[in-house]
């Protein structure tokens, strides 16, 4: 498992990007999907995921939907119109960040 601290600042971008490609997801599904996509490298903790989801909801980037699944209720998150715009911004910010980091840590073998 990599250094989780390095991923911490990117949690919101990860959530938004996942929702952009999956329409709607519930909390547990997000943690499992991240684990699957990163082959266990990134493990989003429960204590970090829900506060991040609630913050994004408060900022008007996410909308919620509730469905009855068998014997319990499930809360799904999906992007609002603003959320979709913000995803694009955050992803390009992230790419810019990755390029900068690449220059810094590996100046000889730049991607460009």
């Amino acid at each position: 498992m990599g250094n989780q601290k390095l991923y911490k600042g990117s949690l919101q971008t990860i959530i938004l990007q996942l929702l952009a490609s999956n329409e709607k997801m519930y909390g547990y599904e997000i943690t499992q999907k991240v684990k699957e996509l990163t082959k266990g490298e990134l493990n989003i903790t429960e204590g970090a995921l829900y506060p991040a989801l609630h913050k994004l909801e408060a900022d008007g980037l996410l909308d919620v939907e509730v469905a009855n699944v068998g014997n319990r209720l499930r809360k799904y998150y999906k992007l609002t119109e603003n959320g979709s715009k913000e995803t694009a911004n955050k992803v390009s910010e992230m790419q810019e960040f990755l390029r900068t980091m690449q220059h810094l840590v590996n100046p000889k073998f730049s991607l460009e």
């Binding site: 829900y50 506060p51 991040a52 913050k55 408060a58």
Partner: peptide
């Protein structure tokens, strides 16, 4: 984690 549901409660309250 050690704080249990506290972080979740706090974030929900803020929202």
């Amino acid at each position: 984690g050690i704080f249990g549901f506290m972080d979740v409660i706090e974030a929900k309250q803020k929202q």
